[in-house]
Design a protein around this nucleic acid. Structure first.
Length: 546
RNA sequence: GGCCCGUUGGUCAAGAGGUUAAGACACGGCCCUUUCACGGCUGUAACACGAGUUCGAUUCUCGUACGGGUCACCA
């Protein structure tokens, strides 16, 4: 066609913004050498998938570790899927994981000078580039109806041809200016398609920072760039936005690999430099013996909200994500148990090429470790914050006497080998229950090796001899003496050697006390528990257990 | 179906042309121990299969199988 320029104006007369103006408005960023500019580009559906955290963390680390910029761009080009308040939900969920953006959409607008950051507001930018491609003969309007495309697909199926709008199937690619003009004047709807010059018998490649060299046949499909409402498809918006926003590293799920050839082609046609690509593998789940993608409909654990509701601390989830994201993270964490996450050097080449299964056992283990090195103060703050939304009873107890709660939480904490009782905040209530009378339940069985007379004797005598000023050694010495006087071995080993000489051993006596005081057979250190409960409460429990 | 990606124990993974093929989780045993938790020691368990290159391949190449993704005016 002779005058593509004329065609561009015919199609989008309203678009007057020029490339020069755009380039002036979005100059190259002035950043230190090696700084990465990354972006998270979700569609505002209101659902935050656990899988979203992988690219999000990757982008965040990459940009912030390099002194770069992390952008939130909202891909709202599909109105149908849009959900009100989605950006706020996203922002607040990510904030819990310390994922903070430097630029882009915010709860009430946006920040940064490379906006707008909502794609629908960038229509004039896309159209400017679209017109450029039209003027160069690299894009054309397509008037095919849905029905026509459906027919085409059936035909392709029959002919065993590849699907898509290309070659001889691309009916609108050869329309004359006059034909187009007539259709436009009749008000016929059209989409704008890229005119592919790709030859699928030739291969192209890119070097993915995660996957390595990726080879693929050149794309020959005339994909849609602008929909009939003038809003771009993901592909076109992707190329224009990464360029105009100065994004250096594109981190996204590997489901985009299939359309990568088209993206490469678009960047080249537009004269844009290719960003570095990082395609991250998908998170899978084992279902009936087969791997499958973690599904937002079927799997509650696919939702980020689930982890919060379940009481996983954000720190724990982050630790787990990091172990999956960088294979050397775990090793580093073992060497630096209390170092802040920021100290870890995140690197793309330590990322896994293949998708992994989500492993709840591992998350729980990681979480236990993470929580075990936290201070009682931190645990208190986090549990309380969680309980506020999820467990009002616990919240009331903890806030009524913060000091008491913190003393409970400091049992076996802050030492060389801390206890690892808690993996999730929803376990805390059961863990601390016996410290609160109305949560206390007498559920433990007294040891059957101890007769009821001896049990009574133990409870009575202990009530007298317990002195909360005793140090741990003195205290246990008293317990041992009591045991011996009643005919129990003072050491477990003695009993095991000659069981016939004793009624039982000191452990049985302790067990009687433990069950009486805590209501259960297992507990953290009794001595510390009693200190926190106080002598009066201890004696009351002993009395009640008789 | 076409195209693309992948495949080291149950899971996450390190590794490298020659290794006793790390480590973590889970599971089992033992030890420590007044219970539990912690900790220590220890055990079971893996390079998908078939060719080729090579003195030698789990590592490189090619096939096969299996798994995943994608083929929209969704992202």
């Amino acid at each position: 066609m002779a005058d593509y320029k004329k065609l561009a104006d015919l199609l989008y007369p309203e678009a007057t913004l020029t490339i020069e103006e755009i380039e002036k408005k979005y100059p190259a960023r002035n950043l230190p050498e090696g700084a990465c500019v990354t972006r998270l580009a979700p569609s505002p559906t209101g659902f935050v998938h656990l899988g979203n955290l992988f690219p999000a963390v990757t982008c965040e680390r990459l940009s912030h570790q390099s002194g770069g910029t992390f952008i939130l761009r909202i891909e709202d080009t599909d109105q149908k899927r849009e959900v009100e308040g989605a950006v706020e939900i996203l922002l607040s969920s990510l904030k819990r994981y310390n994922i903070i953006f430097d630029e882009g959409a915010t709860a009430d607008g946006e920040v940064g000078s490379y906006g707008p950051y909502y794609q629908r507001q960038r229509a004039d930018i896309y159209k400017a580039y679209a017109k450029k491609l039209i003027a160069e003969g690299r894009a054309y309007p397509c008037f095919c109806s849905e029905e026509r495309l459906e027919e085409m697909r059936k035909e392709q199926e029959q002919n065993k041809d590849n699907f898509g709008y290309y070659g001889k199937y691309a009916a609108c690619s050869n329309l004359s200016y006059e034909e187009i003009e007539e259709k436009v004047k009749n008000g016929e709807k059209f989409v704008l398609r890229f005119r592919s010059q790709g030859d699928p018998s030739k291969t192209d490649h890119i070097d993915d920072l995660i996957k390595g060299r990726l080879e693929f046949p050149e794309n020959d499909i005339d994909h849609v760039m602008l929909k009939s409402d003038g809003i771009p498809t993901y592909h076109f918006a992707h190329s224009v936005d990464e360029k105009t926003m100065g994004v250096t590293h594109v981190v996204r799920g590997e489901e985009w690999l299939a359309t990568l050839p088209f993206h490469v082609q678009l960047f080249k046609a537009l004269g844009f430099p290719l960003p570095h690509y990082m395609h991250v593998a998908q998170l899978m789940k084992l279902d009936n013996g087969t791997k499958r993608k973690l599904s937002k409909r079927k799997d509650p654990e696919a939702s980020l909200a689930y982890y919060y509701e379940q009481g996983f601390s954000a720190g724990s989830v982050m630790e787990y994500i990091m172990t999956l994201l960088n294979s050397n993270f775990e090793e580093w964490r073992i060497a630096n148990p209390t170092a802040p996450l920021d100290d870890f050097k995140f690197s793309p080449d330590k990322m896994s090429i293949s998708g992994c299964l989500f492993d709840m056992d591992k998350l729980i283990d990681v979480s236990r470790n993470t929580i075990s090195v936290m201070t009682a103060e931190d645990v208190y703050e986090q549990v309380t914050a969680w309980a506020k939304d999820n467990d009002s009873e616990l919240y009331d107890k903890f806030t009524a006497d913060p000091d008491y709660a913190k003393r409970i939480l400091s049992i076996g904490r802050g030492c060389e080998k801390p206890r690892k009782d808690i993996a999730k905040w929803n376990e805390v209530k059961a863990y601390v229950s016996f410290f609160y009378d109305d949560l206390f339940t007498q559920s433990g069985e007294f040891p059957e090796t101890v007769s009821s007379e001896d049990k009574l004797e133990i409870l009575n005598r202990y009530s007298e001899l317990y002195d909360e000023n005793d140090d741990q050694e003195t205290w246990f010495g008293k317990v041992t003496n009591l045991a011996e006087e009643l005919g129990f071995a003072p050491k477990t080993k003695l009993y095991k050697k000659n069981p016939e000489l004793y009624k039982g051993h000191v452990g049985d006596v302790s067990m009687v006390l433990r069950v009486a005081i805590t209501g259960r057979r297992n507990s953290p250190d009794l001595y510390e528990i009693m200190k926190i409960l106080g002598a009066d409460k201890v004696k009351e429990r002993l009395e009640n257990a008789k």
